[in-house]
Design a protein around this nucleic acid. Sequence first.
DNA 1: ATGGTAGTGGTACTA
Length: 266
Amino acid sequence: MRIATWNVNSLRTRLDRVLAFLERSSIDVLAIQETKCRDDQLPVAPFEAAGYEVAHTGYHQWNGVAIVSRVGLKEVETSYAGQPAFGKPGQEPRVEARAIGATCGGVRVWSLYVPHGRTLTDPHYAYKLAWLDGLRAQAAGWLAADPTAQVGLLGDWNVIPRDTDVWDVTAFEGHTHVSAAERAAFAAFEDAGYTEVTREHLPAEHTYTYWDYQQLAFPRNKGLRIDFAYASPALRDQVTAVTVDRDERRGKGASDHVPVVLDLAG
DNA sequence: ATGGTAGTGGTACTA
């Protein structure tokens, strides 16, 4: 079985690329982030025609997460328990479309779009830390309830865990993604019993999954490693290989992120 | 050359 994660930066704009990727790479389950559409705008028919089911949550033109599967799609949840809400000052805080879970082929798959944080003094930054901490607490509970569960936490984590996960970490001094608090919140998933399997299989430094659209970042290889997959022990045991589809960043109409693919035994 | 990238939606906001 093959499971992948990909921040597509608009599913409607990227639909042809997503369908081509599913076929080219024989993907069974795809965790998608930043669909940038409401449920009623989701292009479902093209996926069904290709043999996939789709689960999605999206409220407007921002965020939006989905799971696409051809090995079953059951027990869909469109947020995790206790997921923090966010709203601008003076607005009612709302739980955003940043997490969706479903059971596919025996694996509990979560597609996650961790809040960006914006700046270290922005309320969005505190929201980001709370969001990660809340998810970790739930994920620890899932394992406590069933230590043999196959659970995958896949997505755009918006954290640069190591200095060598960016072309020049000094360019990020004073910015989000590299702060000690964010890195601690990310690392806490290891303490909760999960293993970040993409690094386990792809340990090379400067292995990037994202290149900004600006400043010719991709041709200059000024990238970030921010897309990851935490796996429970039972799922980790099944992972035989991980691939970053770097070529997907090429050409006209690319997302700024590329897919990360997990090969599973059986 | 007073910009710079992209998407959505609407004359701004997010990343």
